[in-house]
Amino acid sequence: MPIPMTSNQVLNREFFEIRAKILQLAASFDRLNRADGSVDGDPRLSLVHEALAVLASTQEDRAEQIQLLFSRQYEDDWREKFDLASTE
């Protein structure tokens, strides 16, 4: 189902919202730098940087990819690990 707006209409509507969200992110990173201590080795920060790379890409499913980036892995043998029988 197409979105009933042109890309120009979407940008007109959302430009200031996008700008505000980018500023919010920039200020968060500045705040991290100003605070005492270091979080350079924190895996959460690595995830954030990976997410920013997805954001800057041109792929069409960025929201889904970022969701997956912040998700625990699914393993299809989980029932064997839990020793739970399948009903198959």
């Binding site: 997956l68 998700s71 625990r72 699914y74 299809d76 989980w78 399948s86 009903t87």
Partner: peptide
Amino acid sequence: HLEDKYQGTRMILDMLCDD
């Protein structure tokens, strides 16, 4: 919620679809 959603949803679907 959050980081558990994808894994948990797939596990739930496994159980539903097997029955």
